[in-house]
Write a protein that binds this DNA or RNA. Structure first.
Length: 378
RNA sequence: GCGCAGGUGGCAGAGCGGUCAAUUGCACCAGACUGUAAAUCUGGCGCCCCACGGGCUACGAAGGUUCGAAUCCUUCCCUGCGCA
């Protein structure tokens, strides 16, 4: 089980400083959660990940169920031992894949809409590659095409075998192009599944419920009230955030207000650098985002100057580190020129150096915010 | 010196009488990526302009044939291979 202690509440915002105690160590919150979907931070060894100031990782139920299978992981003694990660771990429930492999893939959209789409997901519609029923989701494996059914029970069973410290209830992340009726029906289903997850769970892992409701205020509030009233160890805030990122903070506010004060809140899948201060000010304790790792493989460095695309030829002439104000091993030892050369030459070391830096940068950014909360500046 | 093959946009390499400012790949430029099926995707890429249209200069060089040529002919220059 976990314990959560709030050390300080900001007087300027909803931000709070806390300690999340897990069987694998204490996490200072607010904290960034590194995304290790396939039980790896792509390109880094776990020993390296530890050096990026990463405190906690999130792996994925759907992916690990499909490959290598949770029994393989269980035979190694759980994900921690399997991947040699001594720190805290979460597993996502597979609920996001209902969206990302479903309507998200069908319509080419993410959980924040970037451009206007004509498509609308209406009640009773089904994604092309899966079937969502009242009991769960029939996925079609992108690896070998076989059908994989995951419902609340299956998700919990898998997550129990994986053995992370914190697990999530199975839900459906709805699409930003879903209409009110679809989102409402989906919400009710996710709520029912949430209760079932609580009933099915046998281990003493910390089970977090996930609130949904999309961009609709009444649904967001309804979901937060309902999920918040259940005996979860903590809460995830899931779902889509419409087409205007500026409204994200307000949407989080609708939800956080309804959640129990003394339990941890995890914002699922959000956290570009510009979002981080905003979500923390809304009372988010932990959050995960693929940005630092995903963008690193595209050659993008996150720095105090903003994003730098290391594929750009001009950086070949630049002998400065990625970020002058960063003391990670990448910035201490390597130049922009060298990293750009590595990307030009398609040498994986470039991705390695960027992945390391980006994670370190995100963790440092959050550490800086913790410091500001401590000093009463945020 | 003779014979054969060939010279196309930054590079590689299509095209072989009109639909070609010229397929495609690389490079280059710009953009995207937020609970990771993705080390990916999208757009641009001769010059100029009152730019979902128009003008100019282009396929080694110079001539020629033709209504019309990167595409056919002649000469020249250059490259590779073979023979001397």
């Amino acid at each position: 089980m976990i314990g959560f202690k709030i050390i300080k509440k900001s007087k300027l915002s909803k931000a709070r400083l806390g300690v999340l105690k897990t069987p694998h160590g204490e996490i200072e919150t607010p904290a960034f959660v590194g995304v290790a979907t396939q039980a790896t931070i792509k390109i880094l060894t776990t020993e390296e990940v530890l050096k990026t100031k990463t405190q906690i990782l999130i792996a994925n139920t759907y992916h690990l169920h499909q490959r290598p299978g949770e029994h393989i992981v269980a035979k190694s003694g759980g994900v921690h031992k399997f991947m040699n990660w001594p720190g805290a771990l979460m597993t996502d429930s597979g609920g996001f894949q209902v969206f990302s492999l479903g309507f998200g893939s069908d319509h080419g959209v993410g959980k924040i809409l970037k451009e206007k789409k004509d498509i609308v997901v209406k009640a009773d519609m089904q994604p092309q590659k899966m079937r969502i029923t009242e009991d769960g989701v029939h996925f079609r494996s992108p690896i070998d095409g076989r059908e994989i059914f995951i419902g609340p029970k299956e998700s919990i069973r898998i997550q129990e075998k994986l053995g992370a410290d914190i697990i999530f209830a199975f839900d459906e992340c709805t699409s930003p192009v879903a209409d009110y009726e679809y989102t409402k029906r989906s919400l009710r289903k996710s709520h029912r599944w949430a209760k079932q997850c609580l009933e099915y769970q046998k281990t003493n892992q910390a089970l977090f419920g996930i609130t949904q409701g999309g961009k609709f205020k009444d649904l967001r509030i309804e979901s937060a009230k309902f999920i918040g009233s259940l005996p979860f160890a903590g809460f995830g805030i899931g779902g889509e955030f419409g087409n205007d990122k500026k409204k994200m903070a307000a949407m989080i506010r609708w939800v956080v207000r309804e959640l129990p004060e003394n339990k941890p809140r995890h914002l699922l899948g959000i956290g570009h650098p510009e979002d981080i201060p905003k979500i923390i000010k809304e009372g988010i304790d932990t959050f995960d985002c693929i940005a630092p790792t995903h963008y690193a493989r595209r050659g993008v460095a996150f720095t105090s100057e903003g994003r730098l695309d290391m594929n750009r030829r001009t950086f070949l002439q630049d002998k400065k580190p990625l970020d002058n104000s960063c003391d990670c091993t990448t910035c201490s030892n390597y130049s922009r020129s060298y990293i750009t050369h590595l990307f030009k030459a398609k040498e994986i070391t470039g991705m390695h150096l960027l992945t390391f830096h980006n994670l370190y940068f995100f963790n440092s950014l959050v550490a800086g915010i913790r410091e500001k909360i401590k000093k009463g500046k945020i």
